[in-house]
Write a protein that binds this DNA or RNA. Structure first.
Length: 681
RNA sequence: GCCUCUGUAACUCAGUUCGUAGAGUGACAGAUUCGUAAUCUGUUUGCCGGGGGUUCAACUCCCCCCAGGGGCUCCA
């Protein structure tokens, strides 16, 4: 945008085969004119009405910035005077700041008129759609409606023009406007209840400051803390760093990466081991459950209207990639390409329920800076994503119940303890409360229920499993949604048809139907699983032994020698364990046993093997089995001692402990302390 | 995006009212050859996040930037 004194545009000759009809040969505007040069990009022609509205709003904002600028400077100067006064009185150190001055007379910070001028050269990603030429007239029209005198210059012509840039602080401005399809607004009319395991509904009430008032019927403090976190009750700001950040660094699992955008992390070897174990385990479980597997690209075009209808809902949170003369967006979920793929398939009735699984490495969401937090909220993350096409709502409910059990099993196996939330409409709850209560009952603890008057989202039911952190912060891991919208050809929104994916099949009765889709992130985001595991362990650190389950621990067994004389024997045992598919390392440092044991403790090693002279002589080992998740013993002991057993006995114990879970090798440099690679130390 | 706190040795952190830095851990060396949560002694290490400014003098005061945390908002 250029703020100009007077503007003149002469129409010369057609520049395109079908230029915009425009009778006048000369546009002459006198006074203080804001000239907005406009490029219409690839995605914008999805809906020229929306993009024109956004454009007009941005121009209005610009006008406001210009007109309010002298006032802003005046305010700023008051602050500076105050600051300087403090320095004079020696209340503050430093040197006085200079007052700001307006470049031009304040009368000139005014916009009388607007000229909207199509200017292709602002973008590499121009729209080739003929509708692009509607945008400038629409913007001018919208501004005119708001009482701002506006004109537009014709599209598709060679033109000569004269502008006279005023040259003040805001005389030149640039704005990038991304198409934004706003979700329909809805009133905050949700009601919250707690459902007890025996099916009693307790209404949640709030005080004047919107804080949740604790229910007398609930005795469990952790459940209150969960409700307080979920319901946004104001808590005392502890201002503490989340505990898992220390762990993720000290264990050398994951770390911040300063050489990229915030929220995109670096994984170290042990973190990669855990990542791959969780990946393999989830994948195995999903295959057993009946899923098929796909992998879809992480970036895609914005020129597909069907995708744009969904992706343009979060333009501010999208990463853009440019390549050649095109731009692409980095996916923030896998749904789009999966659904597009499903819409192109010849779906047959016998396929249902059709279960499709993708390990999304990575998804990208450009969250606002203040929202990022350790492993809990990231900009680049890994998410297992599972979608199921069901013939109809009834079969979707049957499938939901099965997947509910699946998710619960996965969490148990990982070692996650969670709280439950069901979010749905009042009607849906009334018609389905029996089985929902049955599920809550099977957990033996209460659940939070949110009820809406109408359905505002694509799902009619959203189920979440949330974890409470050491600092009483609740976050969702697994979630299942019943989506009754995405498979349709289109929906009505604000009186407009909005495209959906049009996923359909011809049923045995000959009718074309759209399936109901379950969205399920069976474990939740991978980083968040690690967040949960560490936070859960740290939450109970005063009463319970912290640790990861044996199958998931980066190092499952540590061999300790009492003196260097046993290093050879210890090494043999360590090698044997690795060959048998377990992750074992050897602490062969010349240190006291006490020190080695302490190290194994702080490393949360599930099995610590001790070999001394006695063991070597008898060809046996002694074991400290860490009682992960159990209450501390006497004198805060963390383990159970098993003396003088054979290596085969240990392997049997390990097989029992990790039965049904995937195996993953420990890279060789990590197997001996004397040659161990550290990333941070 | 807004508000706010933090950044000091490889790691964790201390550093008063400006006067060019200290502890523990680690690493290294020596002693010890050890039986279930830290053996003893010694040595080692610094662009005090980066840039600019104020000052005779800046880790310390001011401004900008970078990175991390917390809060608001947000959470497909």
């Amino acid at each position: 945008m250029i703020h100009s004194k007077d503007v003149e545009v002469h129409k010369n000759k057609e520049a395109t085969t079908n230029p915009q009809e425009f009778e006048k040969d000369l546009i002459k505007m006198e006074g203080l004119v804001l000239v907005a040069f406009v490029s219409v990009e690839d995605q914008d022609t999805y809906d020229t009405e929306i993009i024109a509205k956004q454009g007009a709003e941005v121009i209005e904002d610009a006008i406001l910035s210009i007109t309010s600028f002298p006032d802003k400077i005046r305010q700023k100067n008051e602050e500076i005077r105050e600051y300087n006064r403090k320095i004079e009185k020696e209340e503050k150190k430093g040197k006085p700041r200079k007052l700001k001055e307006l470049i031009l007379d304040r009368e000139l910070y005014r916009v009388d008129k607007v000229l909207v001028y199509p200017w292709a050269h602002l973008s590499k990603f121009l729209s080739s759609d003929p509708r692009a030429m509607d945008v400038c007239p629409r913007i001018a029209g919208l501004l005119q409606e708001k009482g701002i005198e506006s004109a537009y210059s014709p599209f598709g012509w060679y033109k000569s023009f004269k502008i006279n840039c005023l040259g003040h602080e805001l005389a030149e401005m640039y704005r990038d406007i991304k198409l934004y399809i706003q979700p329909e607004e809805h009133l905050e009319s949700a009601k919250f209840k707690v459902i007890t395991p025996d099916g009693k509904e307790l209404d949640i009430k709030f005080d004047n400051e919107k804080n949740y008032i604790r229910l007398d019927e609930i005795k469990d403090l952790d459940f209150h803390l969960f409700l307080e976190s979920e319901l946004g009750s104001r808590r005392v700001d502890k201002g503490e760093e989340p505990i898992h950040i220390k762990n993720m660094k000290e264990f050398e699992l994951i770390d911040f990466e300063p050489n990229t955008d915030s929220g995109n992390l670096r994984w170290y070897t042990k973190g990669v081991i855990m990542k791959n174990l969780i990946k393999r385990y989830t994948e195995d479980s999903l295959i057993d459950f009946g899923a098929i597997l796909v992998d879809t690209p992480i970036m895609y075009t914005v020129k597909n209207d069907k995708l744009t209808a969904q992706t343009a809902r979060f333009p501010a949170r999208t990463y853009w990639v440019e390549s050649g003369n095109d731009r692409y967006l980095l996916r923030f979920a896998g749904d789009f390409l999966q659904f597009d793929m499903l819409s192109n398939m010849n779906l047959k009735p016998q396929y249902f329920p059709l279960r499709l699984y993708e390990w999304e490495q990575y998804d990208f969401r450009r969250e606002q800076e203040g929202e990022l937090s350790g492993l809990r909220r990231l900009r680049g993350f890994v998410m297992p994503d599972f979608h199921t096409l069901c013939k109809d709502l009834d079969s979707a409910i049957v499938e939901f119940k099965n997947q509910y059990k699946l998710d619960r099993k996965l969490e148990e196996d990982l070692g996650i303890k969670s709280n439950l939330i069901f979010r749905t409409t009042q009607d849906f709850y009334e018609q389905n409360k029996d089985w929902i209560i049955e599920l809550i009952n099977s957990e033996g603890k209460p659940a939070l229920l949110e009820l809406w008057e109408d359905r505002y989202y694509y799902f009619i039911l959203k189920f979440e499993r949330t974890v409470l952190s050491a600092q009483d912060k609740s976050a969702t891991l697994a979630t299942i949604q019943i989506d009754v919208e995405s498979s349709l050809e289109y929906i009505e929104q604000d009186g407009k048809k909005r495209q959906k994916y049009n996923i359909k099949f011809e049923d045995t009765d000959g009718k074309v139907k759209h399936p109901v889709i379950l969205h399920n992130s069976p474990t939740g985001g991978l980083e968040r699983i690690l967040w949960g595991l560490i936070e859960i362990a740290e939450r109970d650190i005063d009463t319970c032994v912290p640790g990861f389950k044996a199958w998931l621990s980066p190092v499952q067994i540590r061999v300790l020698t009492i003196s260097e004389e046993q290093n050879e024997y210890g090494n043999k045992i360590m090698e044997e364990l690795n060959q048998r598919g377990f992750r074992a390392d050897l602490d062969d440092r010349d240190e006291s046993l006490g020190k080695k044991i302490r190290r194994a403790e702080v490393d949360w090693i599930p099995y610590t093997i001790i070999v001394g002279g006695k063991e070597e002589e008898n060809e046996t080992i002694s074991i400290r089995k860490r009682l992960i998740g159990e209450k501390f013993g006497a004198k805060k002991s963390t383990s159970k001692q098993i003396n003088n057993i054979s290596l085969e006995d240990l392997i049997e114990m390990l097989n029992e402990d990790t039965k049904g879970f995937p195996k993953y090798k420990l890279p060789k440099p990590f197997r001996k302390f004397s040659t161990k690679v550290y990333f941070r130390k």
